[in-house]
């Protein structure tokens, strides 16, 4: 069965620096406040930067597979 959570394509679930898993509340904070300090490594995660990277990766993938 599903987790019943709404999925957002650009949601960031792990710290990009140390890969520490973000709790669900941390994910909410990041998506709303647009930045978050990772409590594991103190890296400042910026939502726009990371979402953009994800989007670029996705676009590249789609282009490669000829979907775009």
């Amino acid at each position: 069965m599903n987790d019943n959570k709404k999925n957002t394509e650009n949601s960031i679930t792990n710290c990009p620096h140390c890969n520490h898993k973000l709790s669900s509340w941390e994910q909410v904070l990041l998506s709303v406040d647009r930045f978050l300090m990772c409590r594991n490594c103190w890296y400042r995660i910026t939502y726009e930067d990371e979402a953009e990277k994800k989007e670029t990766k996705k676009t590249r993938k789609e282009r490669k597979s000829g979907k775009k």
Partner: peptide, 20 residues
Amino acid sequence: KHKLFPLAQILDLLLDMGSW
């Protein structure tokens, strides 16, 4: 066990939110 309702996930989120 069978996740008829996302109780654990909701509580996990709210407890975290509340402490924060």
